[in-house]
Write a protein that binds this DNA or RNA. Sequence first.
DNA 1: TATTGTTATACTCTATAACTATA
DNA 2: TATAGTTATAGAGTATAACAATA
Lengths: 172, 172
Amino acid sequence: MMTRSEPQGPFPSPDKAEPDAAASTGLNQGALDSILLFTLRKTQAVIMHDFISRFDPLDLRPIQLGALLLIRSNPGSRQSDIAAALGIQRPNFVTMMDELDRRGFTQRTTSNNDRRSYALGLTPQGEALVTKALQLLAEHETYVSATLEPAERRQLFVNLHRIESGLSSGGR
Amino acid sequence: MMTRSEPQGPFPSPDKAEPDAAASTGLNQGALDSILLFTLRKTQAVIMHDFISRFDPLDLRPIQLGALLLIRSNPGSRQSDIAAALGIQRPNFVTMMDELDRRGFTQRTTSNNDRRSYALGLTPQGEALVTKALQLLAEHETYVSATLEPAERRQLFVNLHRIESGLSSGGR
DNA sequence: TATTGTTATACTCTATAACTATA
DNA sequence: TATAGTTATAGAGTATAACAATA
């Protein structure tokens, strides 16, 4: 095994001039595919595409499912905390919560301790939706990782999380 | 070595309830970090942040550098081809080319074969900019991969490219 | 007919300032 | 004074339809 045409790039030399002739356009894309940001971007795009079409029946976008899962794992959290964990701005999360509320998946209970904030939670309908979503999600994850061995997939997560925690802690 | 608290997720079971208590918010983010799309999203965000700040002196956004690198590797290409390789729509690439042209980095030569299309190329100033950019890019790539061994970084690229080519070919 | 570049446009995503009510 | 939620708004990014020139 381990016999593919894998672009790898020496390391800090993101350049190449071989007639890679990849893609459908007949273009040499080699200039980009040893750059991490662009590789992540393209990979994310194809994964997103599968996600969107797979969750279309539930009318759930990725970020919405993210919110529901975080609320379920952290009942009673405040909007600010969920927004921060999702990596979006608080004002933008308000709109999202408005919709999730309107559709009956979440509820904002006024907190007793701090009456400025809400304690977020899932409604029974929200729980039911997440149950369905988790099934779709499992199928999605299996599908997008189909070309990876389980150990390779685990290694991928380890490497991605390592990059992320390495950069978000030490601020250059 | 290999002793970290690495979230890995069994596989198609992206669920967990341990008191992970990660991040600065004290929130259990475990619900998301075994989902590939969200992990890619967060990793991409921190890498993008470094990229943006590092290329600020050149006033170059990632997609613009991507265009310059593709044009350099594929001189004479048409706008449609570069746009497709970048994964953006042709109409949106027109605006981008307008700016790169205006700033003197690229030129659109009317093609002889097909007078509908342009043959794209870098100007000397464009070449000079790319030369500077490649230095910054090398520093950027080294910085964001600092937590990875060279072999781990290569493996990361292999896995990402494998996912992407696996999904973009077989259309579910 | 089909394709290249283009314009116009709309929709989403993202980011910031400023307000209110609480603390 | 500071913080949680909110409103308004502006800027990217992204997507589609339709047109003129050319094939």
